[in-house]
């Protein structure tokens, strides 16, 4: 295992490996999305309470899940990067941010639109939506910090520290937002409760979740390859690559 871990550390090796895997991953992503959408839109029943709007759940839940998973990936990569000083891990951490931010924005948007028929307003300070909003600020803070520091390795390390501080704070923020939400709104108002999911809804949800994760894998690998080019611009193999 250790050999694999240290091999993973060499940018050139990862660049080529990812290069070989990318086409398949993109293909899998498209396939899963097609299957997922078909299941979600056509082959699943409307909810007895929410009717057809339940189909938005198949987008909101995976997006929200991915936005959290993406931040965790970023934080874990940051820990590895700072502890073992692995350039590759910095590249992975930096690549997660824009994808995570976009997914958080999507989760916020779909959550708000999904809430409209239930609550009658376009934005409801629901605990989960509020946590997503704060998560978006954390992502934007990470990207802003990384972009503001000109020197590459300093920007990487500073942003890594911020990601770790952020991931430590996430549960605290989540808990305090939940606590604040129940304090002010009480549990009576139906929160963005996922309707009781019966089997027929599980399949579309899992397929869409798989589709989102496949997309995450594919776009992350592509972004990491770009970050490698940016960081290894001075090395011979990149020059040869560019010239070819």
């Amino acid at each position: 295992m250790w050999l694999w871990f240290s091999r993973l550390g060499s940018p050139k090796w990862f660049y080529e490996l990812a290069g070989r895997w990318l086409p398949w991953t993109w293909a899998l992503t498209v396939l899963l999305f097609v299957a997922g959408s078909a299941l979600a839109l056509l082959f699943s029943p409307p909810d007895y309470q929410q009717g057809e709007t339940v189909r938005i759940m198949y987008l909101h839940v995976p997006a929200a899940f991915l936005s959290m998973a993406c931040y965790l990936t970023m934080a874990i990569a940051s820990v590895i990067a700072l502890v073992w000083r692995m350039k590759m891990a910095f590249a992975v951490a930096r690549s997660c941010a824009p994808i995570g931010a976009a997914m958080t924005a999507l989760a916020l948007f779909t959550g708000a639109v999904w809430g409209k028929p239930i609550w009658g307003t376009w934005w409801e300070w629901d605990a989960r939506l509020t946590s997503e909003l704060v998560l978006l600020f954390l992502y934007l803070g990470y990207i802003a910090l990384h972009e503001s520091i000109s020197e590459q390795s300093q920007a990487d390390r500073a942003a890594a520290v911020l990601a770790i501080v952020g991931v430590v704070n996430l549960p605290i923020i989540h808990f305090s937002v939940d606590w604040w939400n129940t304090l002010h709104q009480g549990a009576s108002i139906s929160r963005l409760q996922k309707p009781a999911i019966d089997a027929s809804m599980l399949w579309p949800l899992f397929t869409m979740l798989a589709a989102f994760f496949a997309f995450f894998a594919a776009s992350l690998m592509s972004r990491v390859r770009n970050e490698i080019l940016k960081r290894e611009a001075a090395s011979r193999w990149v020059k040869a690559l560019v010239k070819a």
Binding site: F137, L138, A144, L145, S148, Q154, L162, N169, I173
Partner: peptide, 23 residues
């Protein structure tokens, strides 16, 4: 401390820190 090296970092500090101040 994260933004010491950046000039005109006042606003950036707020962006980084305010989410952590929420709890």
């Amino acid at each position: 401390c994260l933004t010491l090296g950046i000039n005109r970092n006042g606003i950036l500090v707020s962006l980084l820190i305010l989410p952590l101040y929420i709890p």
